[in-house]
């Protein structure tokens, strides 16, 4: 167990005019830990995710990130250049819609290789080799490397997006409804894959989902959001087996049993 968190979120609030996006969110995330943010549409979970990942600037609060040199940096006080560098090396962001996270008109290999080229890899053969390896790890066969994601199914696109994000060995990955829009069997495969990769690579992850089964399978810890507030926060098993808040109880009791 490492002694320092990877991420410290303190007092993060985001207002859209007088409307609350999210309010006064505090938590810490440790290396290797997966945090699920759950709640219904409009509860502020995506706003929070975007704030933490600096895709959106919050109205108040700070997010500190432990850089590879061990020093904490306040993300909102970093230069944009540093932040963008962080985002394409040490972080990943998996969008719900793969088209938002992929370049749909370049090949799968180039999609995976882009981050490598962005950090200065200039050897085509090696880039391609790494891309092939990653396609394999996300269960895309090597002979699809030159196909564009337009020719891929939804599940394959999502897996490609994951490979594209993980190729630089990030330490923190953000996922926004990673299984949204996929049919159930494809979901299961993706979840299993993500779970395996997160375990193998010791990734820390923040996963936004409205699907409690996804949260149960992937996350160690869970935050329940409602109307922009974190109303319940704890061990995933605890929140799901012994929900304390009325809203959480409602949420848990609404799961369809198969």
């Amino acid at each position: 167990m490492s002694d320092n968190p990877l991420l410290k979120v303190s007092g993060v609030s985001k207002f859209y005019g007088s409307r609350i996006g999210c309010k006064d969110v505090n938590f810490e995330l440790w290396p290797g830990e997966v945090l699920a943010i759950v709640g219904e549409s409009g509860s502020g979970k995506t706003t929070l995710l975007n704030c933490i990942s600096t895709r959106l600037l919050p109205t108040a609060g700070s997010v500190e990130y432990r850089m590879r040199d061990g020093n904490f940096r306040d993300l909102y006080h970093m230069s944009e250049a540093e932040r963008r560098f962080l985002m394409r090396t040490d972080w990943g962001f998996v969008h719900q819609n793969p088209a938002d996270g992929l370049r749909m008109t370049v090949s799968a290999g180039a999609n995976v290789g882009e981050r490598l080229m962005a950090v200065g890899d200039r050897h085509y053969g090696k880039i391609r080799e790494t891309a092939t390896d990653w396609l394999g790890r996300v269960e895309i066969s090597a002979d699809r490397i030159d196909d564009q994601p337009r020719a891929f199914s939804g599940g394959m696109r999502q897996r490609l997006q994951i490979a594209r994000n993980l190729v630089t060995g990030p330490r923190l990955v953000f996922m926004d409804e990673p299984t949204g829009g996929l049919d159930v069997s494809v979901q299961a495969r993706l979840l299993d894959l993500v779970r395996g990769l997160v375990n193998d690579l010791g990734l820390a992850a923040i996963v936004v989902t409205h699907d409690l089964a996804v949260a149960r399978l992937l996350s160690h810890r869970m935050m329940v959001m409602k109307d922009g507030f974190v109303i319940e926060h704890g061990l995933t098993d605890r929140v799901l087996d012994d929900p304390r808040e009325p809203y959480t109880q409602l949420l848990v009791s609404s799961i369809l049993q198969v």
Binding site: G234, L235, D237, R238, D241, D242, R244
Partner: peptide
């Protein structure tokens, strides 16, 4: 048992 294992608060 569930309390001991942390599933119940």
């Amino acid at each position: 048992l569930k309390m001991l294992y942390g599933n119940y608060a």
